[in-house]
Design a protein around this nucleic acid. Structure first.
Length: 725
RNA sequence: GCGCGGUUAGCUCAGUGGUAGAGCAUUCGCUUGACGUGCGAAGGGUCAUAGGUUCGAAUCCUAUACCGCGCACCA
């Protein structure tokens, strides 16, 4: 169907119709392309099925689509794999929240019923997300749509876990970890967010045991004193040199605890003497381990004080307990002073509840074998960040990385492929009899006759995301062979470590190859005021609203128009308006050309030759500019300078072609000697421009293309990319 | 505390050693047959501040300020 130029450009109608035409033609699937070119693969960063897509996703999808479309036009077998991520804690939380509105509580439903609800949610939002991508014009191969909890994917996850375990790199241990008592699960250090908080620094007197007098310790968390098992000072702190080795009577608990020396203590902070709570502080846990101190778990997984906190405090919430402890200490005149103090507290990145460090039996993945390889891939330029500076973020994390806490105590996610002997249930947890296997063992290796129970725990959602580039291709061995490794990954800066680094080491471990060559870190979209776009703040913009208002092409244009190499971009809707106007310009310029050209001598879309001795000054100039535009666009896309490429194309098409050449052409067309050649040049500039613009604004270009009077025409989406001379 | 960005026209951003640019907004003029979602023209910036290098700096260097981000600390 040819475009109808008697009407103004109607993006909605054209976009729907054109997308259907592409789908029908099957060009999104590289297997259906006639080309035998080298494969070019991109895997989409799978959006979380927590909800619909935001502007950042739209920008990212546009970037990937530009690359895929260009490569497809270059004759590569371009494959863009779409999909979504189950996003463990995040999705569990939103479903829980939505159920609560109906008065339903997760624990009342039970695991199985609750998971049914989550799957319903996933079905709904997963599809919304994929529809949004389609509306935007994303040329993904939908026949290869993946989800991180597909049966095939689950199998791969289980196998990787078993592989690591067999290698001795996954282990189970009780250790002080970060615990979110609202989500009721452990978290890794990357899942913490720090918030600057104003609080107090309490100076508490701890009476000496053997002699009169006391030591003063400073703390921001007085309630944790209930779990203290020592007071520590720096070994070279002369103020306390004579006290080291003596004992303190811990107030409220009436416990005799030692005064120890440890180099981790800073003399300058507070009084230089620190209370040590090995159960509820990371640093104290280390000190406790080094000095073999007792561990008192005074806070439970529910965020309430335990029996060990003492009868006065048991059952209180942390904040309540803090008040009460302070009251008690005041009553006993043990508070020397209180200072105002502002510090960072860690919170859960999904619900922003205060994180409580506590000892917990968890599964860990050792990093000392994996991290150096991931570092080497980037420092050896096998994997390259764009812009380059982001490699610092990546490398510095890997340099100091701690073992990865991979188990989570939630319901939604990949169950650990760990099997417990049901008959050994009464053993204490660390003596439990278990075996690791990607499939349920037929027979219990311990008692030979029980039905083995699978672990209730699930994996950190990022454990499965880390396998994405190869797991998505391993559903079919031929795909993996053909399309892996992928070429380019485009993503946001906040998941460089959470996701990118982990994909690199996982891929190196399981495929012996890097998962991708280039990593594009695109700008983060902020509101005009510099706020983060977020639904809860009401500052977010739904790309679908923009698509309805301006069309997908204009939305893509607006996003890319602003996508320079900054790390942030302040959202300016005007750029979409600029896009809309530009589409109109293309539409009308095309109408002009087509009206004047009608039956020209052009038979193919390939580069025609123009004898230079017959060209007018205007002809020569525009052809030269066109040649530059071809080179420049190609170069800018290859260097991932998408915004620059679009600005230059805009300038070329509007000002060089429309404002200048079209005006000159009007006169030339009246001259019989120049007419035919001018027609040819007009058509040539238009066809080449449409090709160059297609990756950015695919719909309008395809629509205009359909009207070109060229024989042997294919759809623009698979036409050849203009060649550099 | 360490590191990374940013600071250029009213707004959003390019420019990156040699007389300041774009889009949007503003003002003025155009019912010329592709387009008024347009055309032509105009106004508007001591390029954050202070030093330095240079014949010459918005552009390089060094500080400082403010905004943002990350890491560490967070007793």
């Amino acid at each position: 169907m040819a475009a109808d130029f008697s009407k103004p450009y109607d993006p909605k109608e054209v976009e729907n119709r054109t997308y259907q035409a592409w789908l029908k033609a099957g060009y999104f699937n590289p297997d259906k392309l006639k080309t035998k070119g080298k494969p070019y693969t991109i895997v989409i960063p799978p959006p979380n099925v927590t909800g619909s897509l935001h502007m950042g996703h739209a920008l990212n999808a546009t970037i990937q689509d530009i690359l895929i479309r260009k490569k497809r036009m270059e004759g590569r077998r371009a494959l863009w794999i779409p999909g979504t991520d189950h996003a463990g804690i995040a999705t569990q939380n939103v479903v829980e929240k939505s159920l609560r509105k109906e008065g339903i509580f997760r624990h009342e439903l039970g695991r199985e019923k609750f998971l049914e609800k989550v799957w319903e949610w996933k079905e709904k939002y997963g599809n919304i997300i994929l529809d949004q991508l389609k509306k935007l014009g994303a040329s993904c191969d939908w026949s290869r749509t993946r989800f991180t909890m597909d049966p095939e994917y689950q199998k791969i996850v289980a196998e990787t876990f078993a592989h690591y375990f067999k290698k001795g790199w996954i282990y189970r241990k009780e250790r002080v970890i970060s615990w979110c008592y609202r989500c009721r699960t452990s978290l890794s250090d990357l899942e913490l967010e720090y918030q600057e908080t104003k609080g107090n620094l309490w100076f508490i007197k701890y009476p000496l045991a053997e002699t009169t007098g006391h030591m003063v310790v400073a703390t921001t968390r007085p309630e944790t004193m209930l779990g203290d098992s020592a007071v520590a000072v720096h070994p070279k702190d002369e103020r306390y040199a004579n006290l080291v080795g003596q004992f303190i009577i811990l107030p409220l608990q009436n416990r005799k605890i030692p005064i120890i020396a440890d180099r981790k203590i800073e003399k300058e902070f507070g009084t230089g003497a620190v209370k040590v709570t090995p159960a509820h502080d990371m640093l104290d846990a280390e000190i406790g381990a080094d000095h073999n101190l007792a561990i008192y778990k005074i806070i439970g997984p529910d965020g309430k004080m335990t029996k060990e906190a003492g009868s006065l405090f048991e059952g209180l919430k942390i904040e309540e307990c803090r008040k009460k402890v302070v009251e008690e200490l005041k009553r006993q005149n043990l508070i020397e002073k209180v200072e105002e103090y502002s510090h960072n507290i860690s919170t859960c990145y999904r619900c922003h509840t205060l994180i409580e460090p506590m000892p917990s039996l968890q599964w860990f993945l050792k990093m000392d074998g994996l991290a150096p390889r991931a570092s080497a891939a980037v420092s050896g330029k096998k994997v390259v960040f764009h812009p380059d500076r982001w490699k610092k973020v990546y490398l510095s994390w890997l340099k100091n990385v701690k073992d990865w806490t991979i188990s989570r105590q939630i319901w939604w996610g990949h169950r650990l492929p760990v099997w417990f002997c049901a008959n050994a249930k009464n053993k204490s947890p660390d003596q439990e009899l278990f075996t690791v296997s990607s499939r349920k063992p037929k027979q219990c290796p311990f008692c030979q006759n029980c039905e083995m129970l699978q672990s209730e725990e699930v994996l950190d959602t990022w454990f499965s995301s880390a396998l994405w580039p190869f797991a998505t291709l391993q559903y079919d061995a031929r795909d993996f062979k053909k399309f892996y490794p992928t070429q380019t990954l485009s993503t946001a800066r906040d998941i460089i470590n959470l996701w990118v680094a982990r994909m690199v080491f996982s891929s190196l471990e399981f495929t012996k190859k890097i998962p991708f060559k280039d990593v594009i870190i695109h700008a983060t979209i902020l509101t005009k005021d510099g706020q983060r776009m977020s639904k809860s703040l009401g500052t977010g913009i739904d790309p679908i609203n923009l698509i309805n208002l301006y069309g997908a092409d204009a939305t893509r244009f607006g996003l890319i128009w602003q996508a320079m190499k900054n790390q942030d971009m302040h959202w300016a809707e005007e750029s979409l308006l600029a896009g809309k106007k530009f589409l109109n310009k293309i539409w009308n310029a095309s109408r002009f050309v087509l009206e004047r050209v009608e039956k020209s001598g052009l038979k193919t879309a390939a580069n025609p030759k123009f004898p230079s001795n017959k060209l007018t000054g205007a002809d020569t100039k525009i052809l030269k500019k066109l040649e530059f535009a071809v080179q420049n666009t190609d170069k800018n896309i290859e260097k991932y300078n998408f915004g620059q490429a679009l600005h230059d194309l805009y300038d070329f098409f509007w000002h060089d072609f429309c404002d200048t050449y079209l005006e000159a052409a009007k006169k030339q067309l009246e001259d019989p000697k120049l007419k035919l050649q001018t027609q040819k040049i007009l058509l040539h500039i238009l066809t080449t421009s449409l090709k160059l613009l297609h990756p950015f604004i695919p719909f309008v270009t395809e629509e205009v293309w359909s009207a070109l009077p060229i024989a042997q025409k294919q759809m623009l989406i698979i036409e050849s990319w203009p060649k550099k001379r």
